[in-house]
Design a protein around this nucleic acid. Structure first.
Length: 569
RNA sequence: GCGCCUAUAGCUCAAUUGGAUAGAGCAACGGACUUCUAAUCCGUAGGUUGCAGGUUCGAUUCCUGCUAGGCGUGCCA
């Protein structure tokens, strides 16, 4: 399709230039010719509003311009184009010869699982950092959304030729994990019968820590009580982080998300790099002392406030290790780094961008996408405050568990992933656990998977009847004459550009929507037309090619989403 | 106060980046299994795209101002 578009582009461009040369069009500058998608076959296969755009410059009605361009296209010498039509206010609709349809099928047949991929990314190294939940509690559904989106984005970017990796930044240092250690300590002592203890300010109330501490008390007894408080809390912090991190990893793996790199904030802090960063900033005079703390002149970079980098207590704020971490990413050679952040990190964006600038790294190296929030709502639609500290949240594991009860373990992950992927990143998502579970069997993912299963079933049936699909060269594709067959192939031809646009816009949700549309053409086709017809083997083989193509595209798309393509349902 | 996000059918969401008659799925109603899987299909109904302006051949999309909700806003990350 791309090759054809390029060809049509040239034909149109030549036609316009010819018209100018002949004096039919008085324009000085030929703009890029835009192609607008045709929503209906009535508008041809490719359409362009170029005549509308030239109207002002040429001082002629758009329809007249369209006619002038059309008259300059010699259909005889361009067999690719079947017909050119002028419609509406001045659209030029181009009807292609059927050959491009067959080309689409041939391309799918020869490229198979590669169909939809390209080398646009030219092997450039990319990194997406996502989830990066604090190791202070289980992965919740908000992180689940980020996990599904980030994982899929990596797949899509790799599909268009990048070398993208998944990275998780573990905030295993700083105040939050200290609070974790203190919280576990309290629960541990409570488990051993100590009374009058309370979770400290900023600590973690969740039930999971109580259970964890009780388990420690049970297996290891009161041995830790002999340690000094500081030492004990530190021990619990490290132990707790390791424990929770392992849990998070397991939950993510169950969800089908496997990170390539786990980076540790603690390791960054211990590496000496933060000191280098401070040194660099001092050298560039970005820092100053005030109120007992060290500040970064964020206002020099256009922000409205400066911010603290070294607290009055002498500790770094997150800012310094974060700078060191991004410096480290840059040094690792990534061409582009994409951070997927939650909306609560929104204030972080400008600062992070400025910080990268301060490090002397090009602006466009770091992309930040916000995965908008997931609000937990109850049955009545009231928002619930989801907080790890207060211990109110749904874990990703709990979601999958509940889904598994309705749709089975096999599909629980598929349903959950699809649920998160079908939304655009920047939409706020109200998540009603009850509804999500009771409506699990209505999830559109089944519509797509069922289409795939039906394709497989046709081949199985054919196999039983002794009908084996023929290679595409041996099949007469001209027998695919039904309008809906044409529509199907049109849709199949769209797939590569959907993947490309999806990757470039960093918008994973386009893939599920596309697949749903494809299935939405396939199912009616399946109901209206029989594929296996022993009285017309020629047509049967032509249709089998089509079914194979649909099956391939469905499978390729589902694979990008990390969703299974079942052969039967 | 300032900054960011959001507002589209009763509900949940799309709309290929400014294109032609704004589309799907749920929910509602009426039909289709003797036929490759009915987790499907066919049909009906559902809209002043939050409001008011502006930009232009053309606006759900861009700009301005409102309204409503959410998030953020110098020593948590």
């Amino acid at each position: 399709m791309d090759a054809i578009k390029a060809e049509v582009y040239d034909i149109l461009k030549n036609a316009i230039h010819a018209a100018i040369a002949a004096g039919d069009l008085s324009i000085t500058e030929v703009p890029d010719i835009p192609f607008s998608p045709t929503k209906t076959p009535e508008h041809g296969d490719i359409a362009t509003p170029i005549a509308l755009g030239l109207a002002k410059q040429a001082r002629k009605p758009p329809r007249d311009i369209a006619k002038i361009i059309k008259d300059r296209i010699d259909l005889e010498s361009h067999p690719t184009i079947h017909e050119v039509d002028i419609a509406g206010p001045g659209f030029i609709n181009i009807y292609l010869s059927d050959e491009w349809l067959y080309d689409t099928l041939r391309t799918i047949a020869s490229t198979q699982s590669e169909y939809g991929t390209c080398d646009k990314g030219a092997g450039k190294q990319l990194q997406i950092e996502f989830v990066s939940a604090n190791p202070t509690g289980p992965i919740n559904i908000v992180s689940g959304r980020a996990a599904a989106v980030g994982d899929t984005l990596v797949n899509i970017l790799n599909a268009i030729g990048y070398k993208a990796i998944r990275e998780y930044y573990v905030n295993d240092a700083g105040g939050q994990v200290d609070r974790l250690g203190e919280s576990i300590d309290v629960r541990y002592r409570q488990a051993l019968g100590e009374e009058g203890l309370e979770i400290p300010e900023g600590g973690y109330q969740g039930e999971y820590l109580r259970e964890y501490a009780e388990a420690i008390a049970e297996t290891e007894g009161d041995t830790y009580l002999q340690l000094e408080t500081n030492e004990r809390v530190g021990h619990f912090r490290d132990k707790g982080v390791a424990h929770i991190l392992a849990q998070q990893k397991t939950a993510l793996e169950r969800f089908g998300v496997n990170f390539d790199v786990w980076s540790s904030e603690k390791a960054i802090r211990d590496s000496g790099k933060p000191e280098e960063i401070i040194g660099l900033f001092q050298e560039k005079e970005y820092l100053y002392e005030a109120e007992g703390a060290t500040w970064f002149r964020m206002t020099d970079f256009g922000d409205d406030k400066d911010c603290v980098v070294i607290r009055s207590s002498g500790e770094y704020t997150y800012f310094v290790p974060d700078a060191a971490y991004h410096r480290d990413k840059y040094d690792r050679g990534f061409t582009t780094v994409i951070d997927l952040l939650g909306p609560d990190h929104q204030g972080h964006i400008t600062r992070l961008k400025n910080l990268v600038k301060a490090l002397g790294i090009p602006d466009d190296w770091l992309e930040i996408s916000i995965i908008q929030q997931v609000n937990l709502v109850d049955a009545e639609g009231n928002r619930l405050d989801m907080s790890k500290r207060r211990g109110q949240f749904f874990t990703l594991d709990a979601l999958i568990d509940e889904l598994a009860e309705t749709v089975g373990e096999q599909f629980a992950v598929d349903v959950a992933r699809y649920f998160f992927l079908m939304r655009a990143n920047n939409t706020h998502l109200d998540f009603n656990m009850e509804l999500a579970v009771t409506h699990a069997s209505e999830n559109p993912v089944f519509y797509i998977q069922y289409a795939h299963a039906r394709c497989c079933s046709i081949f199985e049936q054919g196999n039983e009847q002794g009908i084996a699909p023929k290679p595409i060269e041996a099949v007469s594709l001209k027998l695919l004459t039904e309008p809906i067959e044409y529509e199907l192939i049109r849709k199949l031809a769209e797939y590569p550009s959907v993947v490309l646009l999806s990757a470039e816009a960093r918008e994973a949700h386009r893939i599920p929507h596309y697949l749903h549309e494809l299935a939405g053409i396939f199912h009616p086709y399946y109901n209206q037309h029989r594929v296996l017809d022993s009285s017309d083997m020629e047509k049967t083989h032509a249709r089998l090619i089509l079914i194979q193509s649909v099956q391939t595209v469905l499978k390729n798309g589902l694979t990008l989403l990390g969703i299974s393509a079942p052969t039967s349902m």
